[in-house]
Amino acid sequence: MKKLASFKSLREDFKIEDILDAFFGALLFATILFLPVYLIAFEMIIVYMYRLTLLVVLIIIALFGYIALLHYFWKKSLTLKNKEIKTDINKLFLKNTLIINAVILVLGLIFIFVLIPALWV
C-alpha cells in the first residue's frame, strides 16, 4: 500500500502532543548544535565586512543545514516514539525542508540585493 506523505496522515500516527514534543526536542538539539556555527558566521561577518555578500551566502547555506538538521532530529524523535509509522515521513519532511529552504533563499536574496545596500548608510 502506498504511504501518504502529509501532516494529516502523520496526525493519524501520533497525537498532536507527541508531534509537538518531537518538534521542540528537535528544535532544541538543532539550535544547540548550530549555535557555534551561527556565532562563527556572525563574527566572521563583523571581521570580514568587506566580504559581506559572500558571508551572507554562507549564512544562507548554514540556514539550509539548520533546517535539514531540525527535520532530521524531528524525524528521529518521531521514529523513536513509534517505529511503525504508516506515513511516508522521509518524503513528508524532505518536502517540508525544501519548501522552507526555498523561502529562506528568497529572503536571503532580498537581504543581499535590497537590505544590505539600504542598511549601510
Binding site: A22, F24, G25, L35, P36, S77
Partner: peptide, 23 residues
Amino acid sequence: MNELFKHYKNYILLLVIPYLMIM
C-alpha cells in the same frame, strides 16, 4: 524530547566539554 536525550546520551556526554570550550 526525552527519547532524543536517551538516544544521543553518549554523544552529549562526549561533546559537552569541547562544546563549552568552543563557546
